[in-house]
Design a binder for these strands. Structure first.
Lengths: 225, 225
DNA sequence: ACAATGAGTGCGAACGTTCGTTCTCGCTAA
DNA sequence: TTAGCGAGAACGAACGTTCGCACTCATTGT
């Protein structure tokens, strides 16, 4: 009937190059711009997902937050699902890296304590707890998000597992239960602490650390030196 | 233009009275039938919400699961929101009752251990873990669900708080941290264990109980008798 | 040096679908 | 007789996504 272009058009191709911070921005290459726009979308989507949930946030909402039209956004991600996957994967990878780093501590008890405490602190500072909650819920019914979680976590799982086995063989600790149970429960404890975002509730973090250390110590049963 | 009823209609008013189990069902009063239908809807909705999430499940999906038309369903609940609230409230109330019962144990350490273990077992048996995950996520952005959670949990909170204070005053336990931190961390641990649905992962529950007891004991520091 | 090119990018109306909800009417039970 | 219940088509709104076109800019041929 009528052409899709019979209305006046705004002057197009507005630049969005980092006008948020005062950074002086030189010219951008194609690739740089593409990367920046992708990050812009992920940033906006994260905000929307935290605010409204994966299912509750609409593409229009994300577009508005990213100050971008749907047509533009779809140049970067083929679907809403793809954005969800990208965000879930980035979050899980960041978590995994964080845990791996903390667990590098040669003292296994301190490694686990630091992993939990650092994870908790970083999650709070970056406002990740709501996103983590959302990802957990989504993983229950979205196979690709589930796989992302299992994949990134299996590395950490494997890491802790070997560390514990080595410590047992070296006679440093003598847990009363199987390594499988030890890991399952300690991971559950860690996740519970992260999800509850204790720093946001004004809980004394030094005391939390004391409790975490007491729990880990009680379950790993380090032998007296 | 045309009347909404110019097509053939199925013979209406099918009875749904408990044809699922073999129970012989006598005549039902208006009130009984109303209650049964309400329960039928909540049951179906719960299944759908577990399967698809609060936002992902559609009213049509719930209607199909309940074998009921939208028109019929809306006689019992004014909106989808109302169904979500009803389910969240029932779930939280059941949890609160369960915890209160377990905490009645005069031995405070055993009371807390039993609260966690029983809660975990019941959640698994009734397939509540996914629903709990969903409710937690929904509470992040749905004020009425949030209020439901806080209301039902504040009773349990108060209960534990008083029990711990009394035990401290009686010299039975000597925790190293404040009661507030003690509760926040122990509740986090409990929730982490529930959410992870350890029984579904084949974890040895006796060992889990051993670990939970070790953690609680280590943090409450019961004085030697 | 510069016009021509064409892939890359943004816009935003519009698409078809599905959503939560309403409506009307026939049927049932009190 | 009548108030309540159930069916299911239909509603407007909102959804995720697509479309056609305008515009930009790195590359290319001259």
């Amino acid at each position: 009937m009528n052409s899709p272009l019979d209305t006046a058009r705004a002057s197009a191709y507005d630049e969005h190059r980092a006008d948020d911070d005062g950074e002086t921005t030189g010219p951008m290459t194609r690739a740089e711009r593409r990367e920046a726009q992708t990050a812009r979308i992920l940033d906006a989507a994260k905000k929307c997902f935290v605010r409204s949930g994966f299912q509750g946030a609409s593409m229009h909402e994300i577009c508005k937050e990213a100050e971008m039209s749907p047509g533009a956004l779809y140049r970067y991600f083929p679907s809403k699902e793809a954005i969800i996957e990208a965000i879930a994967e980035a979050d899980r990878r960041q978590d995994a890296d964080l845990l791996a780093e903390a667990l590098a501590n040669p003292d296994i008890v301190e490694g686990i304590v630091q992993a939990m405490m650092t994870h908790m602190r970083v999650s709070h500072e970056n406002n990740m707890a709501p996103l983590f909650t959302e990802i957990r819920a989504e993983a229950l019914r979205n196979p690709s998000v589930l796989e992302t979680c299992e994949c990134s976590m299996s590395q950490v799982h494997e890491l802790i597992f070997r560390r514990i086995r080595a410590a047992i063989d070296a006679g440093q600790i003598r847990p009363a239960v199987s390594v499988e149970t030890l890991m399952a429960v300690m991971i559950s404890i860690g996740e519970g602490i992260i999800l509850n975002d204790l720093p946001a509730k004004g809980v004394n973090l030094a005391e939390v650390e004391h409790m975490v250390r007491a729990s880990v110590t009680a379950n790993l049963c380090p032998v007296a030196n």
